[in-house]
Nucleic acid binder design. Structure first.
Lengths: 219, 219
DNA sequence: TAAGGCAGACAGACTAGTCTGTCTGAAGTC
DNA sequence: GACTTCAGACAGACTAGTCTGTCTGCCTTA
């Protein structure tokens, strides 16, 4: 591996663990086995390294999350495959991302202080949400999902579930917890796929309702 | 407001926005309208301030999230109230937490580099999960929830959903998105509360299943 | 006068980035 | 093949500025 690639790879790991702002150039060059001169020969600034790491992370993310997904497969199968890929091939990839999902780390760390850096990250989030929504709408078309299902709501549920699972995994590093989180999401989307039953349920639950729809104790 | 309280309050806001490591003492004392001497007269170190801010944040969190929750209410009502409180009274509280959930910020930022600082945060996460699980089990006892519901799985789903909603809200600052995320969670728990229907669904969906349970295109 | 609270100069360790010089290996010439 | 030239990768001392934390002394209040 060339020096530049080594720097990107090691920086990616350190950024994933410590964040961008709290990883020093000195730390990076030490781990990468190079020097200030070696570093600044390849990168004009730390920020340029950030963009290189982000691009590489996105490449790996796509590679992992969309692994063995065929266009011919049903939309629902694709969503489930994305969820398991995200869990097993991306989040558990401690070689590239030992500190957990690097996009969440960047986002939390930089969104209020360095918005220009995370703009790209947020665009990635939005793009992924759009993809999920598109798959859900395709699922409605193919009949796998009920046609009164709200794709926006379900997309939000899936996406926040994935974000939350990553955060929690970063916290306790427990693969069991992670498995459970993602399994719950899969269960959720499969539950929705049973059309007759779900139609009946959803009719009685408008969005935004709070207390008055379940009077079990009759107060 | 006394000088010490002002420092804690302003530090809380800055930590919420920039994180702990990336907020300087100079920035804090400037916003708080004091000086190094004024600061170190009240706090032995920046770390001592961290603990003071954390304690204050936890106090506010409890106050907001458990606001107007009565012991007499049904477990399911309590869960829904916690979810709406979390959204409307805690996450939208830009006076105290302009940068979003401070516990997630701390957790993401510090879990790999300063584990001793976030230990308390993670204990708080666990305590809240335990509370949710207890409420779910109570709900099963009262008959609001089906008795074959897996409290661990549902707890995980609710908790990761809340985490994810906070992260996403921190990203796009859209109250609409936040409302949608939390509404989806409420919808989810209400969906589970319909016992007869859910029993039927859940029988056919074992945890951890992936592709082979929905052969819609028969390959 | 005594004491606590606080302002701000300061120390020393850190940061990102610069600059000078060295070393290696490829290309060109005899 | 032997020698020269030179581009560019790289090492590491350096600058300028930031960080946390210390210390002295002033100012207010009792």
């Amino acid at each position: 591996m060339k020096n530049k690639e080594t720097i990107i790879h090691e920086a990616q790991k350190l950024f994933s663990l410590n964040g961008y702002l709290n990883t020093g150039i000195n730390e990076i060059i030490e781990v990468a086995g190079t020097s200030k001169g070696g570093f600044y020969n390849h990168f004009a600034s730390k920020e340029e390294l950030f963009h290189a790491v982000l691009a590489e992370s996105q490449r790996i993310w796509r590679e992992k999350v969309f692994d063995s997904i065929k266009d011919s497969e049903s939309p629902l199968k694709t969503i489930v495959k994305i969820l398991t890929n995200y869990r097993d091939k991306y989040l558990k990839d401690s070689e590239n991302f030992p500190g957990g999902c690097i996009f969440i780390t960047f986002s939390i760390e930089l969104d209020d202080t360095h918005p220009h850096l995370v703009k790209e990250v947020h665009q990635g989030f939005q793009g992924f949400k759009d993809l999920l929504k598109r798959l859900l709408m395709e699922g409605i078309e193919t009949g796998e999902l009920p046609d009164d299902l709200n794709p926006t709501t379900v997309t939000e549920m899936l996406f926040t579930g994935m974000l939350g699972a990553s955060v929690l995994f970063g916290v306790d590093k427990s693969q069991t917890t992670l498995d459970c989180s993602i399994d719950s999401l899969i269960e959720y989307i499969l539950m929705l796929s049973n059309r007759k039953v779900i139609n009946h349920i959803r009719q009685s639950i408008p969005v935004g309702i709070q207390e008055d729809c379940f009077d079990t104790d009759g107060d």
